[in-house]
């Protein structure tokens, strides 16, 4: 029974981790939280659903198109809400991005309706049976996709030239600019990668729960933010660890304490983390200062 549930928690945690990476990457570069991240997650799922249900495009192609559109949206958010305010007080930027988040959420509600939409995917592959534990293929798919995405991101950041530029910009913006790094390009790239990861997470979320709605971005976004803070914001490996940890905590909490307060565990954990260990599990810097 425990291991059966454990597979659920881990696949959920992997989704949170994917989403948390977007928060952490953007934070690492521009030192600001992207409030619209949860909305991009939601839009990624909705675009994919839209291509699938309206144009009857198969999932892999629809997902690819959905991810591309969500990435474009992420870049647009950076262009519209962040870039004009780069030298403005932080307070103004937060309000502006909050405005983007409200805009996207309500736009989605008007376009696609406030109800749940069915996101039915049938892989046609039998579940994996390990002794008494039955693992449905979609859980394996979710976990596998997340691991592949995260691993390739880690390699990208560690090994490639652009990844190096990103790390340099995160470490010291001005010095990076003096070294000839196009900081604007790096910021756009960061938003693009974060948004693409968010869209993948959104699609996986839809595959897992078989339903999507315009408000799904809020809760998932909050939890992923909690995961990012838990892992140490600005640290990609921390976000991965934080996401998995949060998935397990939420699962254990709802299984053994109370399933009604399921969402409250993540938020409670966020507040506790900020009070007692603001730099997170793997964080090196200080948070919120």
């Amino acid at each position: 029974m425990f291991w059966q549930q454990f597979t659920n928690w881990i696949s959920l945690g992997a989704m949170y981790a994917m989403l948390a990476i977007g928060y952490t990457m953007v934070y690492g570069i521009i030192k600001l939280i992207n409030f619209a991240h949860g909305e991009i997650f939601m839009c990624g799922a909705f675009f994919t659903w839209w291509f699938m249900s309206v144009f009857h495009i198969p999932l892999p192609v629809a997902a690819l198109l959905g991810i591309m559109m969500a990435t474009g949206l992420g870049i647009a958010v950076e262009r519209i809400a962040y870039r004009p305010l780069r030298n403005a007080p932080r307070f103004a930027v937060v309000i502006s991005v909050l405005g983007v988040s409200i805009f996207l959420q309500n736009m989605a509600r008007i376009i696609w309706g406030a109800e749940f939409q069915v996101f039915e995917v049938d892989f046609g592959i039998p579940p994996l049976i390990l002794g008494t534990v039955i693992i449905p293929f979609k859980k394996i798919f979710i976990f596998g996709t997340s691991v592949i995405c995260m691993a390739s991101l880690a390699v990208f950041v560690k090994k490639t030239y652009l990844g190096k530029a990103m790390r340099a910009t995160a470490a010291d913006w001005e010095a990076a600019e003096m070294m000839g790094i196009n900081v604007n390009m790096v910021i756009v790239l960061t938003f693009a990668i974060g948004s693409a990861m968010a869209a993948v997470a959104g699609i996986l979320f839809a595959v897992n729960y078989n339903s999507i709605d315009p408000y799904m971005g809020f809760n998932a976004g909050m939890k992923a933010f909690a995961a990012a803070v838990l892992g140490g914001i600005g640290n990609i490996y921390g976000a991965m660890l934080g996401g998995l940890f949060l998935g397990v905590v939420e699962g254990v909490g709802s299984a053994y304490i109370s399933s009604m307060y399921r969402d409250a565990f993540a938020f409670g954990l966020l507040i506790l983390a900020l009070i007692f260990r603001p730099k997170g599990l793997l964080g090196e810097g200080k948070t919120g200062e």
Partner: peptide, 28 residues
């Protein structure tokens, strides 16, 4: 008290979470 050391964007997130906790408690 616990969130006073936090900066703008963190404070926004924590208060958002706090509002959600109150809603969840009222609901459950």
């Amino acid at each position: 008290l616990p969130t006073l050391r936090l900066r703008d964007d963190y404070l926004a997130m924590v208060t958002l979470g706090f509002g959600q906790i109150v809603y969840i408690v009222a609901n459950n």
